[in-house]
Amino acid sequence: MTGIQKTLFVLIAVIAVIFGLTVHKVLNGRNQGDPAALVDAGIILLPQSRQLPALELTDQDGQAVAVNQLKGQWSLLFFGYTYCPDICPTTLAQLRELKGKLPAEALERLRVVMISVDPQRDSPQQLKQYLGYFDAGFQGLTGELADIQKLASAVSIPFIPADTSKPNYTVDHSGNLVILGPDGTQRGFIRAPLNNQKLATQLPVLVGSEG
């Protein structure tokens, strides 16, 4: 191999490496942080993002919201209800505390949305009043039970509908949170119980990983 051929070979190899790294970056997005640290904080990312079903719910102001159009920010979805005796007030209080630990830039990129698993009692007005006890910035969604069940199943947070004929009924549901990316797709979960100390470190890394 001549000197010119060796030089060309080296140049081609370098170009191939650069191209490969560029493709890898494009396909995998910007850095989302240390996977082990994310898992330790309870953040479980999906290997592939999931589209949300095309259905409409009603927010705390009585406005229709297409759930597959929750875009522009990262979203934490929590399936709960206003008459919940334990999981919901605890989780919402933790999320309020977590917001106080996050830097301003991360807060601007993040919203919290509670989706009612008890639409019979959770009117938009009821949701607004209840969420206001925790944080006026928290959003709520309610609607037809069948639509809420469809959404819950799509994001793998199923719940057991209550027997609404019983007085003071409760609803069995999960305390896990759903993570939506700014493109409106599901990116993963946050496991309950929440570890705010670790989440306060890892969430800014995650939500800062793409616009």
Rank of each mutant, 00 (worst) to 15 (best):
P103F: 11
Q5V: 12
I18A: 14
V14A: 14
D40M: 06
I87P: 02
N68S: 02
A93I: 05
Q32I: 10
L180A: 01
P182W: 08
A54V: 09
T82F: 01
N28I: 05
L110T: 01
N168Y: 10
K99E: 13
A64S: 14
V26G: 06
P47W: 14
I44K: 08
V17E: 13
T22F: 15
N195S: 08
L102I: 10
G33H: 14
V10S: 01
G42D: 05
S75A: 12
Q125K: 11
L76P: 06
L46D: 06
G137P: 00
I18F: 09
V23R: 11
P89M: 07
Q48H: 12
H173Q: 13
G140R: 07
P158N: 12
P103T: 08
I87K: 03
G188P: 11
D86I: 02
I43F: 09
P193R: 08
R50K: 15
A154S: 14
L52H: 02
R191C: 00
Q69C: 00
D86H: 07
R109W: 04
Q126W: 00
F134R: 00
L107C: 08
T58D: 00
D34K: 10
P35I: 13
Q126E: 11
D86M: 06
E105Q: 15
V65S: 00
I87E: 06
K6F: 04
V14Y: 03
I15F: 14
V10G: 08
G175F: 01
D40S: 14
G72N: 14
G175C: 03
C88I: 01
F79M: 08
C84I: 02
L55G: 07
I190M: 05
N31D: 15
I4G: 01
E105T: 13
N68I: 04
S123W: 06
I157S: 02
T185G: 04
T185K: 15
I190G: 06
D40K: 15
F189M: 08
N195T: 08
Q48E: 13
L110W: 09
I44Y: 11
P124Y: 04
T185R: 15
V10A: 15
G137K: 12
G137W: 03
V117K: 00
N31L: 10
P182G: 05
I87V: 13
L203N: 04
T170F: 10
L55F: 07
L98M: 03
L206A: 05
S165N: 10
F159E: 08
N176S: 07
D163Q: 14
P47G: 06
A192Q: 13
E56Y: 07
A136E: 09
Y130F: 13
E56K: 13
P53E: 09
P103H: 02
V178C: 03
L151R: 00
R187M: 11
